[in-house]
Simulated assay, not measured.
Amino acid sequence: MIQPMRFLLCVLFGLMASAAQAAPATKAYMSIIIDDLGQSSERDSRTLALPGPVTMAIMPDTPHATDFARQAHKAGKTVILHMPMDPATGPYAWHPGVPIETLAKRLDMALSKVPCAVGVNNHMGSRMTAQDEAMAWLMAELQRRHLFFVDSRTSAATVAAAHAQKIGLAHVSRDVFLDNERSLEAIEHQLLQGIVLARRQGSAVLIGHPYPQTLAVLARELPRLKSQGIELISLEQMIAERGNQTMPAHRGHRAAAPTGQVSGTE
């Protein structure tokens, strides 16, 4: 028996597809990033097999980071560095109060572990992305390196995107987290929220993780996006589409932190 929530989601997806076919609306774009890659060859391979321009965010302190970055790049996927930031730990992690010189060395080391990276997004970072001096330095450094930035918006106090916008650095900000709750129904609901948001504001950036449930939902639903009036595009295309402008929901540099946000899902 189909669970009531699953049945309702199926009906909603069906209605949206029918509406898109009957009356094409203004174009709506979506970009999807999968974080925390490089830890498992099996999960990395499943993520790489997702259809369309899904972005691979690879952690530097993982056993398969370098090999998978090259593999993903060869497959034509956008590769970005998933940079550990406080409260993340490890040899690459950024923490408040650490001298800029040390932060710079950790960034250098992290980028060397993830070859072919064309941008950076923060892993965790709920405290670090609120640090004005460090974020201002990071955005200037990324501009110097011709890399873009994705603010994962793991904190309501983030100033990262604001500093990127101030200097004209290519950047976007996350709109929807797919899998803070790992059930199929919850992930389907979040994807639907992303579709609704993309159709309302013209675009949406979604972040998920290589959980089996997330990959199953995306493998099934991504091929259906076009019939629902949604075009899946790369992050580079999304940056061009948004023109570095802050979305209405992000203005004021306040971001609603995901409910129940913990280190494993940032």
Rank of each mutant, 00 (worst) to 15 (best):
residue 88 A to Q: 06
residue 23 A to Y: 07
residue 216 A to V: 02
residue 119 G to N: 12
residue 36 D to Y: 02
residue 131 Q to V: 15
residue 195 I to R: 09
residue 27 K to T: 11
residue 233 I to G: 05
residue 71 Q to A: 12
residue 179 D to S: 09
residue 164 A to P: 04
residue 264 G to L: 15
residue 46 R to G: 07
residue 5 M to C: 08
residue 90 G to R: 10
residue 252 G to M: 05
residue 108 D to Q: 15
residue 106 R to A: 03
residue 239 I to W: 03
residue 177 F to N: 13
residue 255 A to D: 12
residue 251 R to I: 08
residue 28 A to F: 10
residue 41 S to N: 09
residue 36 D to L: 02
residue 99 P to V: 08
residue 199 R to F: 03
residue 211 Y to W: 10
residue 169 L to H: 07
residue 42 E to P: 12
residue 53 P to I: 06
residue 58 I to D: 03
residue 238 M to R: 01
residue 191 L to N: 05
residue 223 P to I: 01
residue 120 V to W: 02
residue 236 E to G: 04
residue 66 T to S: 14
residue 187 I to N: 08
residue 134 A to K: 14
residue 190 Q to R: 03
residue 17 A to G: 03
residue 184 L to A: 03
residue 34 I to R: 12
residue 100 I to Q: 15
residue 3 Q to G: 13
residue 245 Q to R: 15
residue 83 M to G: 10
residue 127 R to C: 03
residue 208 G to Q: 04
residue 27 K to I: 04
residue 148 F to G: 01
residue 70 R to H: 11
residue 78 T to L: 02
residue 264 G to I: 13
residue 48 L to I: 01
residue 211 Y to Q: 03
residue 106 R to V: 00
residue 40 S to F: 04
residue 123 H to S: 07
residue 164 A to V: 07
residue 145 R to K: 04
residue 54 V to F: 00
residue 30 M to N: 11
residue 161 A to W: 09
residue 62 T to C: 05
residue 61 D to H: 13
residue 183 S to L: 02
residue 111 L to H: 08
residue 24 P to C: 11
residue 79 V to W: 03
residue 92 Y to Q: 09
residue 167 I to C: 07
residue 259 T to C: 00
residue 229 G to P: 05
residue 20 A to S: 12
residue 158 T to F: 05
residue 154 T to K: 04
residue 154 T to E: 02
residue 141 E to K: 13
residue 49 A to T: 06
residue 136 A to Y: 00
residue 133 E to F: 01
residue 261 Q to F: 09
residue 79 V to T: 07
residue 248 P to C: 08
residue 37 L to H: 09
residue 152 S to Q: 02
residue 230 I to A: 11
residue 25 A to Y: 08
residue 260 G to A: 12
residue 217 V to E: 04
residue 91 P to A: 10
residue 164 A to G: 11
residue 235 L to C: 09
residue 19 A to C: 13
residue 79 V to F: 04
residue 39 Q to E: 10
residue 19 A to K: 15
residue 44 D to I: 06
residue 165 Q to S: 06
residue 29 Y to S: 14
residue 1 M to H: 10
residue 257 A to E: 15
residue 43 R to W: 03
residue 245 Q to H: 13
residue 157 A to T: 12
residue 169 L to T: 02
residue 136 A to T: 06
residue 225 L to E: 14
residue 100 I to D: 09
residue 224 R to I: 08
residue 158 T to N: 01
residue 230 I to C: 10
residue 138 L to K: 15
residue 55 T to S: 08
residue 256 A to S: 10
residue 185 E to K: 13
residue 186 A to Y: 04
